[in-house]
Write a protein that binds this DNA or RNA. Structure first.
Lengths: 139, 139
DNA sequence: CTAGTTGCAAAGAGTTTGCATGGCG
DNA sequence: CGCCATGCAAACTCTTTGCAACTAG
């Protein structure tokens, strides 16, 4: 199996999308947000194209696909060279805020559950529901 | 605030849905499956009604809602009387098995997130998605 | 030149909403 | 009787597909 894969052109749209995601870094976006972004930039990219590129980029390991809530659209996040293990998400049930949290606890949980309980956690879907500071202190 | 809750009638449809889910026990179903089930039973329930009841039942803590795969529809599973608090829930995305896990790690997580990150986790909704031993070792 | 790419329009799936009718308490 | 529940049809959102025109290499 040769690694030569010319089966992909380096088009302007692809570049735009990937660059945009790289700029966002750890922040994830939805397909719709990407579309809206470029609309405003006078460089509109068709939604079809966006979806198709996102899919390819996921397969190529350049970005990661998240499923936070269901009805909500999928989120995509750039994968940096760094050991970006991702972060976890705290979703406030009251105000709806989504908090991104970088913390080693994530890895500890994953390892513990894998080693002690034989369950391989899908980190991409790990979401903790609860109340953020503002919302529970006011209760 | 009295515990009187007249804001919900015990209708036939509600009973049918809840009973059906209780019978299914550990097996989860989708809204569509419920609809199809009662269609065949000559006791068709409108999809709207099904969705509305499922939502209420989730809020009442009678059933639990899961998101397995993305495009797929949401899954609902009956919550038995048994004490389902104080432990983790691991839901296998592949075989659908729900694993109840008693482990001190839970408290650690909860405390850590509360103390370090000011977020009060709602344990009732905490579900980890991933793959159980049988499903990931076969990969 | 040629295969991959683009994007409009339309299809699809799952879920929600509007609204008039029906039923529980 | 009043308020909630019901369910049909239509709306909505996110995503995918068909297809003809276009472009990178």
């Amino acid at each position: 199996m040769n690694d030569k894969r010319p089966a992909s052109y380096n088009t302007q749209q692809r570049k735009l999308i990937l660059d945009y995601m790289a700029v966002l870094g750890d922040n994830h976006v939805t397909a719709g947000q990407i579309a809206r972004h470029f609309e405003h930039e006078d460089a509109a990219i068709g939604q079809t194209t966006i979806y198709r590129h996102l899919e390819k980029l996921v397969n190529d390991g350049r970005i990661r696909k998240y499923f936070l809530n269901e009805g909500d659209s999928a989120c995509y996040q750039y994968i940096d060279n760094k050991d970006c293990q991702g972060h976890f998400h705290l979703k406030c049930e009251k105000c709806g805020k989504l908090i991104h949290l970088d913390c080693d606890l994530l890895n500890e949980i994953q390892e513990h559950v894998l080693n002690k309980h034989n369950f391989q956690i899908n980190m991409l879907k790990m979401v903790f529901y609860g109340k953020c500071k503002e919302c529970f202190s006011g209760d």
